[in-house]
């Protein structure tokens, strides 16, 4: 099975967009290597703008370029995009409603040992609190290409969380997918497990582990936060009566919160376990796999959480 960095898929989609006639402008903040933008820059050197290490300016300039008629993409590390430029994202992009598509690269614990300055476990929480912001969390290379292609063709602000991890396409990737539809990972009646973005791969593996122990998982990959088709989740939870959410994000404000709010709003009294960086803590400056293990986001940890439930 082919493994591909999702950023490579993203850049391929940029190249395709320009060849489709989209007036694209890619803005980076010294993040040419972070964004793996080289193949695009070589093909379209006039369509890459580097604003230097100045992330507030990255967003302000991008909003201006969008108001000047371009479809604008920003591509830099998620921690320095969302937290550093929060007010620019809020006012210049969301409130002014400019046609800016923000790629949050290497989110979650992707930077592992570099520590909390480089982790981005609050980006979804912050983006969810903004009006008019669409949020996508692609799961695999094909899903990334689909999400990026979608936002480039849809007017208005968007945030796409693009994990730097190397992942295969999910087994069903040949089939039909909508950009905001949960993707089935496994079918079972004992427990629902939802994996946000690339955490879906760990959920898939955990489902296999649990199946051997006689626990049948209804597993779903979640490729978006807003919009997101909640129907499959409602049906699944109604069937199993128990749900675990898995995300490389704080349990505050991400998928776990979204599901908790949904279940509460719908009056569905079921057991819910939210796996992620625990409420109110920073993740340690440790390798990614070690952090995932600590917060039970690895397949073994997810399976253990399911057994406890």
């Amino acid at each position: 099975m082919e493994l591909k960095d999702q950023r490579t898929s993203m850049v391929d989609s940029f190249i395709e967009a320009v060849s489709d006639g989209i007036e694209l402008m890619v803005v980076v903040s010294d993040s040419t290597s972070t964004s793996k933008i080289k193949p695009f820059a070589e093909k379209y050197p006039d369509r890459v703008i580097n604003v230097g290490i100045a992330e507030q300016n990255l967003i302000g300039i991008s909003a201006g370029l969008a108001l000047g008629g371009f479809v604008v993409v920003t591509a830099n590390a998620a921690p320095f995009l969302v937290a550093r430029s929060a007010e620019q994202v809020k006012n210049d992009v969301a409130y002014t409603n400019t046609n800016v598509k923000m790629m949050g690269l290497n989110p979650g614990f992707a930077y592992g040992s570099l520590g909390p300055t480089h982790h981005s476990i609050e980006d979804i929480s912050m983006m969810r609190s903004l009006g008019g912001m669409r949020i996508f969390t692609p799961i695999d290379p094909s899903g990334t290409a689909m999400a990026v292609g979608h936002v480039l063709k849809t007017n208005g602000p968007s945030y796409v969380r693009v994990d730097s991890g190397v992942f295969p396409d999910l087994p069903d990737s040949e089939g039909f997918r909508a950009v905001d539809d949960p993707i089935r990972l496994s079918e079972g009646g004992d427990i629902t497990i939802l994996g946000l973005g690339t955490s879906a791969h760990a959920v898939l593996e955990a489902s296999g582990i649990l199946a051997k122990n006689g626990i049948n998982v209804d597993g779903w990959g979640i490729p978006s936060i807003r919009p997101l088709n909640m129907e499959p989740i409602r049906k699944s939870v109604k069937k199993t009566g128990a749900v675990i959410t898995v995300e490389a994000h704080s349990t505050h404000g991400g998928l776990g919160s979204l599901v908790a709010e949904f279940l509460s709003d719908e009056g569905m009294a079921v057991r819910l376990k939210r796996l992620g960086a625990s409420e109110g803590v920073f993740a340690p400056a440790s390798p990614r796999l070690s952090i995932e293990k600590k917060f039970m986001l690895d397949p073994v940890g997810i399976a253990e959480a399911a057994r406890i439930m």
């Binding site: 402008m25 703008i49 507030q56 300016n57 967003i59 302000g60 300039i61 991008s62 909003a63 201006g64 370029l65 969008a66 108001l67 000047g68 008629g69 371009f70 007010e87 620019q88 006012n91 210049d92």
Partner: peptide
């Protein structure tokens, strides 16, 4: 906020 956006417009 306005001046960075103005720079983007001028660059556009």
């Amino acid at each position: 906020h306005g001046f960075p956006i103005a720079c983007g417009l001028a660059l556009a």
